[in-house]
Structures are given as C-alpha cells and as structure tokens.
C-alpha cells in the first residue's frame, strides 16, 4: 500500500488527464456530432451520403486502430501530433459518430406534427430545428448521450497505448515498479467507477430538469 500512497501525486495527475480527455473529447464530439446529424437529415444527397459513410466507418472500426492511425499513421503522411492532442482527435471523431446517431434518433422521435406546426406558421427550417425540434430531440436523446459520455470516459484508457499518462498508464507504471498490480488496477478501476457514478448522478438530474415540462 505504501507504494500506492507514494504514487498519489501521479494518480491525481493521471486522473486529471483522464477527465480532461473525456470532457474535451465529449464536448468537441457533441458539436461535431450535431453537425453530422444536420448533414444526415438534410435534403442534400451528398451531405447525407457523407454523413452515413462517416458514421459507418467510425463505428465499424476499432477505436484502438483509429487512435494508432492518428498517432502512428499521420506522421507517415507528414502530420505529427503530440500524444494528448492525438488522443483527443481520435476520441472526438469516434464519439461524434455515435453522438450523431443518438441525436438523429432523438430528431426522428419527434412527432411530424411539430414540424408541421412550425412550418404552418412560416418558421424557417433552421429556426424550426433550433427552437422546436432540437430541444425536444435532445431530451429524448439524453439517456443515450449520457451513456456515450460514460463509455467515452472508460475508452480514454486506450490513450495509454500512445504514451499518454492518464489513469490507466499511471496504474500500469505503479504496478510494474511495485509489483502491486492488483492494488494499482483495482484502485484505477475504482476511480473510473467514481467518475462515472458522478456522471450518472449528473445525468439523472439533467433528465429530471428536462422532463419538467412533461410531468
């Protein structure tokens, strides 16, 4: 246990990096995912096809391969990105694919009458989407989006393979220097669980707030 206590500063730094990776990638992925959803539901066949292809590729291939392509593959093309930005880029692109599908599901769940009511008053497509459809779709999609956030938090552990010193990497190095692998990984696992428990509570509060209009 001494070794683990000694590694506390390292653990805290790893925790910080993990949370940073997860939150930044989620926010960026949410924005990108929203844009992909717009492309997906647009009338333009080109935009639509691009969105479908993007989602299919990013969801259909392992995240680990995407991470390694960004970190090891891009330098081959002359683009060199540091480990942490590489990880954020890969996580963002990956979660955007999932989040766009969550959001699209939300949009599709909204009754056609909502579009019609907005149309019938002369509201523009963009305005209808922003003011009428999106807020309702977001509420419908919140459980799925929350689940994505939690999954992403755990997926950030893959950044350890491209030398990012986050929670898992810290646990691994602490374990290997002390031969206390069980303690190190159990502790790291517990920390992930704690982060996600907090996220779940946040999600529940958010869902209740968004559901206020419906009770």
């Amino acid at each position: 246990m001494d070794h683990l206590v000694l590694s506390m500063p390292g653990l805290l730094r790893g925790l910080g990096v993990t949370i940073m990776l997860g939150v930044v990638s989620f926010v960026l992925g949410f924005v990108l995912g929203g844009l992909i959803t717009l492309a997906r539901i647009s009338r333009s066949p080109v935009l639509k096809a691009t969105a479908i292809a993007y989602v299919s590729l990013l969801r259909g291939t392992p995240l680990l391969i995407q991470i390694m392509l960004v970190y090891f593959g891009l330098p081959q093309l002359g683009v060199r990105i540091a480990p942490i930005p590489s990880a954020i880029l890969a996580f963002t692109l990956y979660s955007a694919a999932y989040l766009s599908e969550n959001l699209r599901g939300g949009v599709l769940a909204i009754d056609q009458g909502q579009w019609e009511a907005a149309d019938s008053m002369g509201m523009s497509h963009g305005r209808s989407l922003r003011r009428i459809i999106y807020p309702q779709a977001l509420r419908v999609a919140t459980p799925a989006i929350g689940g994505r956030f939690i999954a992403l938090m755990k997926d950030t552990s893959l950044a350890s393979v491209i030398t990012v010193v986050e929670l898992t990497r810290v646990a691994e190095s602490t374990g290997s220097s002390s031969f206390r692998y069980v303690e190190a990984f159990v502790l790291a696992g517990a920390v992930y669980w704690l982060i996600n428990a907090v996220l779940s509570i946040g999600q529940a509060i958010l869902e209740r707030r968004m559901g206020r209009a419906y009770t």
Binding site: Q114, A117, M121, G122, M123, R131, I132, A213, Y214
Partner: peptide
C-alpha cells in the same frame, strides 16, 4: 392552421407557444 390534435410545442410554456412565431417570423 389549427390542427385536430393541436400540435402545441410540449417543451414551451403556453405563453412561449403563443409568442414563438410572432418573434421569429
């Protein structure tokens, strides 16, 4: 247009339903 099934916006209050289009359109 007044619809058979109203098609009010469920996420907006009564007043917000009424003033949405006057403001945006």
């Amino acid at each position: 247009m007044v619809f058979q099934n109203y098609n009010l916006f469920p996420h907006l209050t009564v007043l917000e339903n009424v003033i949405e289009a006057p403001i945006s359109v």
